[in-house]
Design a protein around this nucleic acid. Structure first.
Lengths: 206, 206
DNA sequence: AATATAGTGTTATATAAATAACAATTTGTT
DNA sequence: AACAAATTGTTATTTATATAACACTATATT
């Protein structure tokens, strides 16, 4: 299968969680318009996304939820799972770590990093915090592929370079600093200042 | 001026912050390609965005940074500022609150809410935490227009309804729960599970 | 058995966003 | 003064995404 559109990937992630909820409540089949309603989408959108991933329903009985979830799993998740590190254990890093751990998933936070001696050595939801100077060593040792970057802005660029150096393949960047880091590393930025300013603008103008 | 494209609004927020940094370092003018480079964009993209907001440079001298910032301010910010509440003071709510306060801006967090008696009454970065049952009263009293929603998933829907009832105009939704809340309220969703799964997918497939 | 209904899968169209193309303008250079 | 270089503002094109249109199929209904 060729690479999916970004937006479809995003929705697949959402479909999966919605579908798992349905499964948990005993539902076995679902129509496109039902799934659409759960996520505030249209039925066409759902069907089109499922077309992209080549899933077919039993005509007129809706989609087999279990089978669909399995398919999404096979598309989104790496077979052996992917190891993740959180870099920068301030409030946000801590929040994210506690948010992710416990959720059964093939994405595992296996290490967290900080620069502060008071934080290093502590455990966050059972995950050890290492000195950021050990980044390269630990990334290799624990086969970490993705970093969630939650350091203060003034060290963001340097840390991103360290991550590149360490051989990371993807970064979820929560700092407000744009990273100039080349094409080899997949970077997804999330800027909450922008988000809130956007809400403010559209509240004002809609 | 008519309503701007979403993506342009997002970039305006980023332009502003980058430009303020330039100002702080004493720079007075900037070329489109310089600004583009700061944010990993192209010069054309920058010029097109500035076209949308009707800004003109002094030909061949680049943009007057101060004037441009003022223009962006006039577009993005409400004249009197907009008051914000954070609802749900777990790790994430706390992180966001400390992240936003102190930043001089016309977006002010003026109240935070929680349901836990141990949290209610505490101050977060100097902002009082109220019982969520006082939502409506406080929203009116403090003229709160926007809510940042960081409650646990099981109470997300109910809380969103309470916010609607209280007269909120916009929500930045950090819960993973889709809100079915009608058109009157502008909702911006951010789902970090989706974000990280997206990074994982593209790391695997690019 | 013929017809209607509800739902799907896919192609076609519309909208949004990014990129490219280029004329216009100012400054510098000969 | 003529020309080249750099940069802008805008229109045109391309690409990405969402929406609409519709033929197809299984089931239900008469």
């Amino acid at each position: 299968m060729k690479v999916l559109p970004e937006k479809t990937v995003e929705r697949l992630s959402e479909y999966r969680r919605a579908l798992i909820k349905c499964l948990d409540s005993g539902q076995t089949h679902i129509y496109s318009h039902q799934l659409a309603k759960l996520l505030n989408l249209t039925a066409v959108q759902v069907r089109r996304d499922l077309m992209f991933i080549g899933y077919s329903s039993l005509q007129r009985k809706g989609y087999d939820i279990k089978a669909l979830v399995d398919l999404i799993v096979s598309i989104l998740d790496a077979k052996e799972g992917l190891n993740i590190a959180v870099v920068g254990m301030g409030n946000l890093g801590t929040a994210i770590t506690s948010y992710f751990t416990g959720k059964r998933s093939r994405l595992n936070i296996v290490a967290v990093f900080d620069i502060d001696q008071k934080t290093i050595g502590k455990a966050f939801n059972g995950i050890a915090c290492y000195n950021i100077s050990e980044l390269k060593k630990m990334v290799q040792e624990k086969n970490i592929k993705i970093a969630i970057l939650t350091v203060p802005p003034n060290v963001a660029t340097q840390t991103a370079n360290d991550l590149k150096e360490a051989g990371i393949a993807g970064i979820l960047n929560f700092t407000t600093v744009p990273l100039h880091i080349g094409e080899q590393i997949y970077v997804e930025d999330y800027d909450m200042v922008t988000s809130i300013e956007k809400v403010a603008y559209f509240v004002k103008n809609k």
